[in-house]
Write a protein that binds this DNA or RNA. Sequence first.
DNA 1: ATTGTTCATTTGTCGTGGACAAGATCGAGT
DNA 2: ACTCGATCTTGTCCACGACAAATGAACAAT
Lengths: 309, 309
Amino acid sequence: MNNTLSIVGTTQDLSYNIAAVERDTGLSKDTLRVWERRYGFPKPLRDRHDERLYSLPQLEKLRLLRLLIDYGHRPGKIINRSVSELTQLISSRSPAQTPPPEIDAIIELLLRHDVENFRNALLQALMKQGLLRFVTETVTTLNHWIGEAWLTGRVAIFDEHLYSEHIQNILRNAIIAQPGRGSVPRVLLTSLPGEKHRIGLLMVEAVLTAEGAACVALGTETPVIDIKNAVPAYAVDVVALSFSSAVTQSAALAGLTELRGLLAEGVEIWGGGGALARARKAPEGILLLRSFEDMRYALERWRVEHVRR
Amino acid sequence: MNNTLSIVGTTQDLSYNIAAVERDTGLSKDTLRVWERRYGFPKPLRDRHDERLYSLPQLEKLRLLRLLIDYGHRPGKIINRSVSELTQLISSRSPAQTPPPEIDAIIELLLRHDVENFRNALLQALMKQGLLRFVTETVTTLNHWIGEAWLTGRVAIFDEHLYSEHIQNILRNAIIAQPGRGSVPRVLLTSLPGEKHRIGLLMVEAVLTAEGAACVALGTETPVIDIKNAVPAYAVDVVALSFSSAVTQSAALAGLTELRGLLAEGVEIWGGGGALARARKAPEGILLLRSFEDMRYALERWRVEHVRR
DNA sequence: ATTGTTCATTTGTCGTGGACAAGATCGAGT
DNA sequence: ACTCGATCTTGTCCACGACAAATGAACAAT
């Protein structure tokens, strides 16, 4: 079972065993070992039983590498560069643009760790704009720029955690405020195992609920089989899946196709999110939503096609 | 990278490669291979390149096994029983006790997949009892009995997902409703990597906020180093960590001790949750909270010890 | 009766290297 | 500009040996 919390460590400078590194970097054990074999990095110390002990600097460099690889760099080209070269690569990649001032003001509060005012700024934006605009404009751009700031190291991991929690609070608060009795269509909302990003899912739920659909939200990481079983149980008309850009496009399409094979014909499948934003054509029987605009249109279309007699 | 969603499959009856099985069962590839070697199950077909291809029945039996093992059965004893024997084991596991009627009524709605009324029943309970009693009584017992019903197979995985989402909606809604300006102490709230249960964390946040503390919630799975860095950034007085019964007690204690070594003396560490409920004695410099009562007492004590001049 | 200790067994994770599929890159040809 | 195939790169899979960590049983001590 993969529920170890263990971190090997002496009091002062700690070392991480290979499982801890896999957790903290997202690089599989196989990958870590094969990198060591091929490129000579990371070359961890060994404990008394010849098991790998990674140091904190190694772990930090691995995180940098992961980031750059996600961004399109090839491992072999960058793995033996120094940490400073890598950070330079990251910052040089960042676009010259700056976020719009109202977004920047909010990010500024996050950077100052001013929890109360950060929360209030978000709430005020929501009040001022209404749920739909708040989600489709403010939250979308906030996500983008905070991701950007994280890449360049301006925003720490815990800041991003905090941001995610607060957005969740606000979105869930907005969702629960909606009535949503007997609405159509009934939409099952979730992501496949491996996809952990909750915010995209909540944004969709907020918009759909606001547009009068009935959402059955299952959170993240529902195995395909369980989705298949949930569809008849909750009598849903549509299954909507979210894929953040942390997953590859091909993986997302494969998951969608897999699900299509398992579900009844009448049930629609919608897929959206960063991983699919640039997808060319949809697999048979699947609707790709490249924007919130697309989604509202899809909703409209469903309703026209399923008019009550 | 472990973000493959790929599933190998022909249109009709699909087979799953070892990565897909790892995802859907939570059993690591190493475990799957060593079970095959030792016990002869699961013995998957091989593709043209000698790679394992698991069938759907195998996958389903693996999920049953996982369930029983989580409950305390030993793999070696049950792995070669038939599926019907295993399901029998699960249903015979059902405890003599039954949940109190008001809890049972709510669970019944979940079993009927009656989303709207389920939501309303939860909201009504909250209104009737107030936040504190709702969390410490209703949610606590609901968690317990739904976990129980899941073990006996009465509640499906997707039902539990749905339950978790709704509880989150409600708790976060309650949290955001509180003012919380300039309160003390400032409490950082999170869990360590590997601990994914969010509900316990949210329950604590709800209670603490209601009691007038200022919570800085980082969600689940924050690496120790990031906690260490967050403490000065957010100027917190207390770090509170939650450990569900999915982790072992020793792992929880190790994590707490590890953290203690990294944080400044003045910062308190509180640990709570299922894994620690039966812990004997706390490590040096750590406060174990075995109940919500304990937590309110700890809060009281902190305030007395840090009286404003 | 509960708690601590010791010892044997079970079980999951780690190690090694070899192999190869799937992806990425690049050049040639339409 | 674009497919197409050849070529390199990279992650995942395999086998199987070893052993640490978890569990259970047996027993002593409080």
